[in-house]
């Protein structure tokens, strides 16, 4: 049996012991099929711990599917089949015995469209916390204030914690979703184009927050905004499709990938000649 991920009370920094020294996520020969049709194949990748890693490439080359493998949201998609080896903090998460609720508490996710629940701002953060065993009122209150402050939302909403979260603006909603994910003290944060539904100002705010997460969390972000990848990511992976099947073409430190790309396809894509 795989040892379960550590319980809630431990701070993320205390968890860095297991797994390999520098890598929070390791993929080996990962393939995903939808109803027998391959979305991508043979992806091997090691994501450095505590850094921001961006995945870029045209739509439909499997970047989002790859994120969904890491918290096994793929299990919810009918006809989706995953093969290969996925290790998060050294743990084989494809193990059928792996408890999904625990895994997902340690691997948070931010979606393309902000998706706060149709509840109050407070309940949005409280609900998942309660679900993971934080039930004492003072602790809940402290955590809610803490994470809302972390995303710069506390001063904006402190007087209306009990009003509907859906009345917030798009950017505020996305920051609330980030706060909700942070409240569970995850080790890894997956972000699927978190800024693409937002206006430039709200987008810049989210970007700023992501940069501030560096060092505390391992962030894996899918983005279509090359400028964004260039600005915030330490490492960048470039995906491309061949015959409708996604592949990881190149993975390198962001500076290297953008300035001295090894593959001609990468060069063409980042110059805007293809894709």
């Amino acid at each position: 049996m795989t040892p379960p991920l550590l319980p809630m009370r431990h701070a993320p920094s205390a968890l860095l012991a297991n797994g390999s020294e520098q890598h929070a996520i390791e993929l080996r020969n990962l393939c995903v099929c939808y109803h027998g049709k391959r979305a991508f194949r043979d992806i091997s990748l090691a994501v450095p711990r505590g850094e921001i890693t961006a995945l870029i490439g045209p739509s439909g080359c499997g970047k989002s599917s790859l994120l969904q493998c890491l918290n096994r949201l793929t299990d919810m998609i009918p006809g989706c089949h995953v093969e290969g080896d996925v290790r998060v903090e050294g743990l084989n998460i494809m193990d059928p015995a792996q408890d999904l609720l625990t895994l997902r508490r340690h691997v948070g996710m931010l979606f393309q469209r902000p998706n706060p629940f149709p509840l109050s701002i407070r309940r949005n953060i409280e609900l998942p916390l309660r679900e993971h065993g934080v039930i004492r009122k003072p602790e809940l209150r402290a955590r809610i204030e803490q994470v809302l402050d972390d995303v710069g939302l506390w001063d904006e909403v402190r007087d209306r914690l009990d009003s509907p979260a859906l009345a917030l603006s798009g950017g505020q909603q996305q920051r609330l979703c980030l706060a909700r994910a942070l409240a569970l003290a995850p080790r890894v944060l997956l972000m699927d184009e978190p800024c693409s539904a937002l206006d430039p100002l709200a987008s810049a705010k989210i970007e700023e927050l992501i940069v501030r997460l560096r060092g505390q969390y391992t962030v894996l972000i899918v983005t279509h905004n090359l400028g964004q990848a260039r600005r915030i990511a330490d490492h960048t992976g470039f995906f491309w499709t061949e015959d409708g099947i996604g592949r990881l073409v190149e993975f390198a430190p962001t500076h290297t990938l953008f300035n001295q790309p090894q593959d001609p396809r990468t060069r063409a894509y980042i110059r805007g000649e293809r894709g």
Partner: peptide
């Protein structure tokens, strides 16, 4: 999806 990604049952 949001609920699942937060590890809610």
């Amino acid at each position: 999806n949001a609920a699942a990604a937060l590890g809610m049952s």
